[in-house]
Design a protein around this nucleic acid. Structure first.
Length: 839
RNA sequence: GGCCGGGUGGCGGAAUGGCAGACGCGUCUGACUCAAAAUCAGAUAUCCUUCCGGGUGUGAGGGUUCAAGUCCCUCCCCGGCUACCA
């Protein structure tokens, strides 16, 4: 009887964590002799405490990192803090502290929480984006953008969150609400800084192709939707009075002969001119005002009643010269296309509804096969394919062909061209808040806007300021910050007081990790070339558009600036979007009171159990519901490994995984069975944990092996060879589980080697399964009759097709089912089944 | 409306076109115990049948195939993204 103690994670976990920390076990450097692997999780915002979503995210990443190390990769697995942002300011206001103090205290707390989970980070590379040594490089990138014209200042109507007291990027407005606080977003006219992400629209879209297979389809599809490429043509309709023209964007140039009116957005810049002096001028302007003042959400809602008004003006059809009345329509968006739409009621439902309401002509120009459209009797628009009619020289063409023919004809007369329209807008990065990276720009009355010279970077965010209770930025009222001298003329000047959107910091942090301590440059070219791109990125799907689009944009831009190697166009080769951790079917939140505190769970069950539960309960991409009995089950399994080890501790040997031989296994059928199971488990777990990231099934396979060992251990213990088989299988269990539950496995491995050279499990190679160990002499083959399972037979593994067929037909159970039937066909799948077709 | 996911026991979830429900949770039975807990062993889709066994079953309906949860078509439902996008 062994005196081995019971499983006590509270003593073994801190022990290994201290050892990993003091020995810097997971620090890494570039090593050209080894293949590299860069595993990265989306870094946390230092909100105060880890939540279960973090724990799950980082558990997934840690398994990948540990697995790759055991496979012989040189693994980079860093962590840091996305440390600028509004919650710090709000908390500081609420608790009367300073955002910096609050942030750094949270980082300290969360760092120790991460350490208590045993994640294998290279802590030497830890970064915090609020540190000047980090954001100074961002300011440098900003200056490069200025030089290249990739950042510009523009006065425009912007999304304004009244609660956060700042503007928001389009990507940060969700259903008309602020992504952070759910406030109703207002529209405000402001001068703001924009990053020209649209300059990369084409490449951002095209390169999604490169990510197919590595990224989830739905993320690719979300990005495609967001970028929103739309191919069509810009057509020009000259004004009747000859004083200008109206360009329109259309995806249906083939329907141009069906145009019976023109619809402009009420905000269209030409409206004032068009109605000037017209009889209903005042009425039209009132309409414009009314629509303009409508709430944005109401205006874009589905059930907005289509309303319009005739301006009194006309333009001319580009081909026929026919007079086309110009209307205003409340459903036309000023910010998409040209803000003007050529209306073809016969082939566009919106135009159809509008034409019906206001009595405009409906003229079909695309005839579907086998039907004759009549504008007078149509009940809805026809938007399908067909043959051109009522379209002059284009009549008789298939409409798809007419699209390009018409564009070409218009091009010849200077009235149109092929164009592409994008949904993507430039990225507004100005924020009217304090806790962010200052925009390195100075305004001088004489010289205008002047970039801060590179030598004066960083522009440090002053920390000796008091935040205001209403959240307004204190920067404009901080003379030490604002007042400066103009770098050009030396005169008095003012600093920009807007800070950068925090998504700018997270757009390039993955690259900074490759040389996190470098002081004289943002990156080390050799380190970048070695580590980039990130091989596996892991995080929540809520960043499918925001962060992941911005980071892709930055990668391309920094490549073009010469910071990144030329061949790096995409930052993240593979992306895994992990699901949420729910409680009682809904997202954990303090307000609902359904949170599960990771620290409490670690205290109760240990980090290994928490990690195991997060990985075992569901496949990583799926949401899962936290279950108290589920985590009990995970704890039970670890206790079971511990007990199994304890039971056989005194009779097993410190051997490598998969070390028992066929000769050892020959001692008994059971020994052979166990060795086979051991190798089959290595095959399955390696595939599931290492390649497919289906940790739940990989762990399930190890559970099966453990179950089998429980049943076999007494018999195997009886012989020397049996003990070898058992020892090998136990080592295999510990090795396979070590990426998931490193503390327990390391502890048992150390105990196993108590009388030998000290050896770390994590330095062991991932086990190799052997084909010959998976071979059986006798197999069970299923007999189906007409596709239904009827019997099973044991046959020699090398039985020929003929032998199998013969054996199946001779099987008494099969014979009984075949009574009175004639066998028509026999399908034999060697090693699997025999299907007898009979009637 | 468009695009992308998904629908399998009481629950979480498994199944390269080849034994549906692995593994875990829960439940039940047995062993151990004075007893309970823990642990160990076993059972657990559903219906019919005393047993042997048989029928049915992966959202619905068709199809392909010797064989379909898996492939194809039509449809329903749930989730996500996008949307009067011209």
């Amino acid at each position: 009887m062994s005196t081995f103690q019971r499983y006590d994670p509270q003593t073994i976990e801190p022990k290994w964590q201290h050892r990993w920390e003091s020995e810097k076990t997971y620090a890494c450097t570039e090593d050209p002799t080894k293949p590299k692997y860069y595993v990265l999780e989306m870094f946390p915002y230092p909100s105060g405490n880890l939540h279960m979503g973090h724990v799950r995210n980082y558990a997934i990443a840690d398994v990948v990192a540990r697995f790759r190390r055991m496979q012989g990769y040189n693994v980079l697995h860093p962590i840091g803090w996305d440390a600028f942002g509004l919650p710090a300011e709000n908390a500081a206001i609420k608790h009367g502290t300073h955002p910096a103090k609050w942030t750094y205290a949270n980082i300290d707390n969360m760092r120790s929480q991460l350490k208590s989970l045993g994640y294998s980070y290279d802590w030497d590379r830890e970064i915090a984006t609020c540190h000047p040594k980090y954001y100074r490089w961002e300011q440098e990138f900003f200056l490069r953008c200025l030089e290249k014209g990739l950042v510009y200042r523009k006065k425009a109507t912007q999304n304004w969150c009244p609660k956060c007291n700042t503007v928001l990027a389009n990507e940060q407005v969700v259903d008309g609400l602020c992504w952070r606080c759910d406030s109703h977003v207002q529209q405000k006219e402001l001068t703001q800084w924009f990053l020209k992400i649209t300059a990369y629209a084409e490449e951002l879209l095209a390169d999604l192709k490169k990510l197919e297979g590595g990224w989830p389809d739905r993320v690719l599809s979300m990005q495609r939707n967001w970028i929103g490429r739309s191919e069509g043509a810009e057509l020009i309709f000259p004004l009747e009075d000859g004083k200008g023209q109206i360009p329109v964007f259309t995806t249906r140039p083939d329907t141009v002969f069906g145009v019976t009116f023109m619809t402009l957005a009420p905000e269209h810049p030409l409206v004032k001119e068009l109605v000037a002096g017209k009889p209903n001028e005042a009425e039209v302007l009132r309409f414009v005002e009314r629509v303009r003042n409508m709430d944005r959400i109401d205006r874009q809602s589905d059930d907005l009643e289509k309303e319009g008004m005739f301006t009194g003006a006309y333009c001319l059809h580009p081909f026929t010269g026919e007079r086309v009345p110009i209307w205003l329509g409340n459903f036309v968006l000023a910010e998409y296309g040209t803000g003007a739409v050529m209306a073809v009621p016969a082939h566009d439902q919106r135009d159809f509804d509008f034409a019906k309401k206001y009595g405009m002509a409906i003229r079909p120009v695309v005839q579907p096969e086998g039907a004759a459209l009549d504008g007078a009797t149509m009940t809805e628009a026809y938007d399908g394919p067909g043959t051109m009619i009522n379209s002059g020289e284009f009549n008789g063409m298939p409409n798809e062909q007419a699209k390009s023919a018409i564009i070409e004809a218009l091009h010849k007369i200077g009235r149109g061209r092929k164009t592409v329209n994008w949904r993507l807008r430039d990225w507004n990065i100005s924020r009217q808040r304090y806790w962010g990276a200052p925009i390195p720009v100075i305004y001088c009355d004489k010289c205008g806007m002047v970039p801060v010279p590179q030598k004066d970077l960083p522009v440090i965010l002053p920390t000796n300021v008091q935040t205001y209770p209403d959240g307004r930025s204190p920067l404009p009222d901080t003379p030490e910050f604002v007042e400066c001298t103009c770098p050009v003329c030396g005169g008095k000047a003012r600093r920009e007081t807007d800070t950068m959107d925090t998504f700018v910091e997270s757009s390039w942090y993955f690259a900074r990790y490759t040389a996190a301590r470098k002081e004289d440059a943002p990156f080390d070219p050799a380190a970048l070339a070695y580590w980039l791109p990130v091989d596996q990125y892991i995080g929540g799907v809520e960043h499918a558009i925001l962060h992941l689009l911005y980071a892709r944009f930055f990668t391309k831009m920094l490549r073009d600036f010469g910071y990144f190697p030329k061949n790096i166009s995409e930052p993240f080769t593979n992306l895994l979007t992990q699901g949420m951790v729910l409680k009682d079917g809904s997202k954990m939140s303090k307000s609902k009171g359904n949170t599960v505190d990771p620290t409490a769970m670690i205290a109760k069950y240990g980090a290994d159990t928490v990690r195991l539960f997060c990985l075992f309960t569901a496949p990583p991409e799926r949401d899962f519901d936290w279950s108290d009995s589920g985590i009990e089950g995970s704890y039970r399994f670890l206790s079971r490994i511990w007990r199994l080890y304890g039971d056989v501790r005194d009779i097993i040997m410190p051997v490598a995984a998969c070390s028992s031989t066929a000769k050892d296994a020959a001692v008994s059928p059971l020994a052979r069975e166990i060795r086979l199971k051991e190798h089959a488990t290595v095959k399955k777990a390696g595939e599931d944990i290492g390649n497919r990231y289906q940790f739940n099934t990989g762990i399930a396979a190890v559970m099966e092996l453990v179950n089998a060992l429980y049943l076999a251990k007494d018999e195997l213990s009886a012989t020397e060879q049996g003990r070898k088989v058992l020892s090998s299988a136990i080592s295999t269990v510990l090795t396979l589980m070590s990426p998931v539950t490193p503390h327990l496995c390391e502890e048992l491995w150390a105990d196993l080697h108590r009388n030998t050279e000290p050896s770390m499990l994590e330095q062991q190679p991932w086990p190799q399964w052997r084909e010959d160990a998976l071979k059986r002499d006798v197999l069970t083959v299923v007999i189906q009759i007409n596709g239904k399972l009827r019997s099973k037979i044991e046959v020699a593994a090398d039985a020929s097709k003929e032998e199998l067929e013969h054996a199946a037909l001779a099987d008494p159970t099969a014979a009984r089912h075949l009574e009175g039937l004639t066998v028509r066909k026999v399908v034999v799948i060697p090693g699997r089944l025999v299907n007898i077709v009979a009637n």
